[in-house]
Structures are given as structure tokens and as C-alpha cells.
């Protein structure tokens, strides 16, 4: 390499420290575990996580596959992004299909209007067992939800895949200890200390590629239970609903039938950073129908083995 090194990095900023810590966690888990996997939904957090994984092991490829737990209720743009990203980086993709879990009778089909969100836990745990994964990286952040705020960076799962919030392992300093017995596994969350704004600032700084639905675009939407849903094969307007065409974007990516859009004109990363910095509603509160079922929806799902 003949590129002259840049002199120094005198002032490490907040993003540098978050990045350094996330890379450290990625390397620790890979070193301590036998068969890690990275959970990749195509959403912004998993895109950042994958970007960090590539940096952590550069110039080699990350020494693990990526896995998509596919509910079958996807935004087309997100699936395209998933396939394009995996191909661009030369990674191995494992798809764990909720539809297959339904077809095999592992879970009941909630129907077109129902949520497949909770079913993902069964599909995810079955895939972890089938592939013998002992660690799964996820892009979850503690600022997303009050149950996530309680979770360790390395979160232990018993042989049934369950999280026990009352008996978490002590986790002091940067000493992440990843030892598990056969059948048990870990979830590892390198983005634990990142906020939504940190993620967007980092995406802007690093120019991380994202699915197009994160940027403002025109789309037919209906308003349902306070959420703006994109009209698609999964969301058919009811007779009392009015379809409007609006400039919207998505703050999170989940099931197409349960993820709300927000009205927005933010078409660039700089616009989005500015928008997120002044948001008055949380990203999950604004856009995720799956969190609205009960006060402890996330905790209940996590106990069962959710992301």
C-alpha cells in the first residue's frame, strides 16, 4: 500500500468510540464462539451491523454467514437490497422461512391480516438449532424499547431459546464471556449503546447503502389505527378507507402489513439526520404495529426467543 497515512486522530468523536466498541464485540464473539451467524433483515440497523462486521475482519470476509428470518410479508425493495448486498460482499445467505414453519405445522397461520412477527421466534430458534449456531449477532439497540434497555450485550439463551430477564449473566467492563453449553446460545448486540440518531449519523458518515424505502418517495397509503400503511398485496384498502398518494418514508423495516410509514420529504441522508434529530415520536411508536399489543409486548416476545 502506497497511500500516505493520515497524520492522527486527535479527537475521537462519539461515533468513533461506538464503532470501536462494536468492532471489539464482533471480534470477541467470533473468537469465543464456534458457529456465529449475523441476523440480517435488510433494515438499517442490520445494514450498519454488517458494515461493521466487514470492517472488523477486513481484508478477510466476516467468518460467518448472514441469516434472514423471512416472514414472507416483505417489502420488495428490502428483499432486493438483501440479495444485492449479500452478493456484493460475497457472503453466504441462510434464509429461515416463516412460511415453511407454517407449512410444516410448527406455527399456526395468522392469515393475511395477522402478524407474523411473533412467529419469527419459532422459525429463528429452529434455524439456530438446525444449523448449530451458538451465537447470533443482532442489530437491536437499547434505546428502542424498555425491555431491550435491560438486555446485556451478550445475552444468554437457554436450550429452549428463552431469555430470562431475572437471571442475566453479570457483564462487567469489556469482558464479554461467550461460553455456553451445547444447545444453548448467545445473542450478541454490538449496537446496544447506539441511539437511532447515532445510527443515522453513522450511515451518513460512512455512506452505508440502504433499501430505498428509508428515503422519501411517493406511494399510495391508507391510514389504519393511527398508522400510515403502504397499499400492497399485504395491505388491501377496506371499503371505508381512503387511499391517498403521499410523500412518505419508513423509519423502521418490518412486516409490510404492520410497518407504518411516516410523512416525510427527507430524500437524502442529511435530511433524514435532521428529521430524526427533531422527532417527537419514537421510531417503534411511530411505525410498529407489533409493539402495540400489550405493555410488555417486546419483553414477552424476547422471553420466547425473539431477536
Amino acid at each position: 500500500m502506497s497511500i500516505a497515512p493520515t497524520p492522527t486522530n486527535t479527537h475521537l468523536d462519539h461515533l468513533d468510540l461506538l464503532e470501536a466498541h462494536a468492532i471489539y464485540i464482533l471480534r470477541e464473539v467470533v473468537a469465543e464462539c464456534e458457529r456465529p451467524v449475523l441476523l440480517f433483515s435488510g433494515g438499517k440497523d442490520s445494514a450498519v451491523l454488517l458494515h461493521l462486521a466487514v470492517k472488523a475482519f477486513w481484508p478477510q470476509l466476516p467468518p460467518f454467514p448472514v441469516m434472514h428470518v423471512d416472514t414472507g410479508h416483505n417489502f420488495d425493495e428490502v428483499l432486493e437490497f438483501r440479495d444485492h448486498t449479500v452478493e456484493r460482499l460475497g457472503l453466504r445467505l441462510v434464509v429461515a422461512s416463516v412460511q415453511e414453519s407454517i407449512d410444516r405445522g410448527r406455527v399456526a397461520d395468522p392469515g393475511l391480516l395477522g402478524s407474523r412477527n411473533r412467529l419469527q421466534s419459532v422459525t429463528l430458534l429452529d434455524a439456530i438449532e438446525a444449523h448449530g449456531f451458538d451465537a447470533a449477532f443482532g442489530g437491536a439497540r437499547r434505546d428502542e424499547d424498555k425491555a431491550r434497555a435491560k438486555e446485556r450485550v451478550l445475552s444468554f439463551r437457554d436450550s429452549f431459546g428463552q431469555w430470562d430477564p431475572k437471571a442475566q449473566r453479570p457483564e462487567l467492563w469489556n469482558l464479554y464471556q461467550g461460553r455456553v453449553n451445547p444447545g444453548e446460545h448467545l445473542r450478541a448486540f454490538p449496537l446496544s449503546d447506539w441511539t437511532e440518531l447515532d445510527v443515522w449519523r453513522y450511515i451518513e458518515r460512512e455512506d452505508v447503502e440502504l433499501p430505498s424505502i428509508y428515503f422519501a418517495h411517493h406511494r399510495d397509503v391508507v391510514e389504519r389505527q393511527g398508522m400510515l400503511l403502504a397499499v400492497s398485496q399485504f395491505v388491501e384498502p377496506r371499503s371505508d378507507e381512503v387511499v391517498t398518494r403521499e410523500s412518505v418514508r419508513f423509519r423502521t423495516v418490518g412486516d409490510a402489513n404492520l410497518t407504518g410509514a411516516v410523512r416525510s420529504r427527507a430524500a437524502t441522508l442529511a435530511d433524514i439526520v435532521a428529521e430524526v434529530a427533531t422527532a417527537t415520536v419514537s421510531e417503534r411508536g411511530a411505525t410498529r404495529g407489533d409493539d402495540r399489543f400489550s405493555e410488555t409486548a417486546m419483553e414477552d416476545r424476547k422471553r420466547e426467543g425473539y431477536f
Binding site: 497511500i3 497515512p5 493520515t6 497524520p7 492522527t8 486522530n9 468513533d16 464503532e19 470501536a20 470492517k55
Partner: peptide
Amino acid sequence: RGISTPGGSRSEVDPGLS
């Protein structure tokens, strides 16, 4: 002989970086 950071090569680095 050389130092690499997530942001590229450096001639010196402060503690706190991977």
C-alpha cells in the same frame, strides 16, 4: 510498521479505537 483503524491507515492513534 503500520497502524490501521476502521477509518484507514494512521501514523498514530489514541486509545479507545479498535
